[in-house]
Nucleic acid binder design. Sequence first.
DNA 1: TTTCAATGTTGACGGTGCCTACTTTGAGGT
DNA 2: ACCTCAAAGTAGGCACCGTCAACATTGAAA
Lengths: 189, 189
Amino acid sequence: MKTKESDYHHGDLRGALLNAAREALEQNGASAVSLRELARRVGVSHAAPYRHFDNRETLLMALAADGFNELARRLRAEEGKDGTLMEMGQAYISFAIGNPSLYKLMFSPELDRKKPGLLADAAGAAFGLLRSQTATTDQEQSGTLAAWALVHGLSQLLIDRLLPEELMKPDQLGALVESVLGHLHMVSD
Amino acid sequence: MKTKESDYHHGDLRGALLNAAREALEQNGASAVSLRELARRVGVSHAAPYRHFDNRETLLMALAADGFNELARRLRAEEGKDGTLMEMGQAYISFAIGNPSLYKLMFSPELDRKKPGLLADAAGAAFGLLRSQTATTDQEQSGTLAAWALVHGLSQLLIDRLLPEELMKPDQLGALVESVLGHLHMVSD
DNA sequence: TTTCAATGTTGACGGTGCCTACTTTGAGGT
DNA sequence: ACCTCAAAGTAGGCACCGTCAACATTGAAA
């Protein structure tokens, strides 16, 4: 209980802002994440966020980095159990449709993924997991890429609800993923 | 030559705005497309665009619809020649990396693809081409979906420059696409 | 106890989307 | 040839945003 009398200092403003941001993100999309609104929601002045984030993009990058870390954690968990590529694909897509706006944000072109930082590291780590799953054969490298592209693309199509409605009923979703992933050579091998 | 003395009426403000928007889009991304800036660039007052577009989103949707139409045109052209799925995939990806910001916009969650209009129609038409390419077998429907997801996902990864640099050298790009698409059962059949 | 760096506040600036009220214009009907 | 009137453009204002600079408060270290 840090509820001191004077709450001039928040205690964990950075974390509070990130929490509020994640809520706002999934509720109304990334464009609805405004520093002023977050400050308001957390009960702090409109310029306070700038003590913890250089600018809006920095905050969004932190959010995206969290996303990559959580995705990596889920993939690692699946890897620990059986580790078939099929199951990792399921976990990947499950994460994507469970956090659609966050997933979109993680691949948003607004975020500069080039000059490194937390985002670049987290993304690299997550994708490293996919790569390690397959052999290092030059031939199979394109197989990894194909699996990644397929899973990523299917996630996007699902998130954007671009598929026929009957295919997207939640109970049939696992089967859908399975049948689609089944069209990769490497999975059946 | 419509250069009359009084240019109070622009003549084709709507088209001029769309052109300017497309330029700004590819130069600085969708977030940099501002109605006021477009008006400025075209030489018109800041409220003039509202005579042609209900709001900013409407303009972006028109832009995205154009994108779908152009994509459909290119796919249809490929269909006319040989029509192998491999070549349609190449055409698809070529369009995506040739117009990265536009392609991103076409799948942006900001745009409400639900309540129909030009966007929904154009998107449906473009995707119909992919579907017709494969048979109607229920089994093969998931094949179409796999091909679509694969091509879409690979486009995103390329646009976001998320692949190792050596894979993205423009001259090797065709081979990359070919080898990745080759991992689909249906292509080799 | 004093100090001082970290954290939070206030106020301002320019930019944006969008609204309302006003003005200009050109095309069609008489 | 004139009138009319709706379409198209303008001017100004509102609320919001991101960001900055100057100031205030605080807790912890010296």
